[in-house]
């Protein structure tokens, strides 16, 4: 099983990133080989639609599972269409979350937020 997680840095010392679409890196962890790989999130610098592009990256890397603290509705639509399961991270530790998903302790992410698009410039 391939698990992907948005992370702040490209090392095992990294914490899980609070943002999915604009996380600097993604960790790809393969449960079969116990191997970890870090890839850059090219969606992070997008003008808009970062969640969609980030989700496309998750799909293209053939992940089975995404562990993330939050996820927007557009990204969720992409991930659902690719049958990728979205789990909610329990804290910001990569290792603890990987352990938790292996023992079935993580739960599916239920709150999908509406995204932050269209708020540039601000109102009121």
């Amino acid at each position: 099983m391939k698990i992907m997680i948005p992370v702040d840095e490209n090392s095992s010392q990294s914490k899980i990133c609070v943002s999915f679409g604009r996380a600097p890196y993604f960790l790809i962890y393969d449960t079969d080989s116990d191997e970890s790989k870090y890839i850059e999130n090219t969606a992070a610098e997008s003008q808009g639609g970062a969640g969609i592009k980030a989700a496309q990256i998750i799909v293209d890397n053939k992940a089975d599972v995404l562990i993330t603290p939050r996820c927007g509705e557009n990204a969720a639509e992409v991930l659902n269409a690719a049958n990728i399961k979205i789990y909610k991270s329990m804290n910001d530790s990569i290792q603890e979350n990987l352990n938790a998903i292996k023992s079935g302790e993580l739960s599916i992410l239920n709150e999908i937020h509406e995204g932050f698009h269209g708020h540039h410039g601000g109102r009121r």
Partner: peptide
Amino acid sequence: CVDFCKFNALAYINNKLFIFEKI
């Protein structure tokens, strides 16, 4: 088209093009 769109309004999943109209 997916690569071109600077607003990421398009995605390609499971051999199917997705268009996000609001984006």
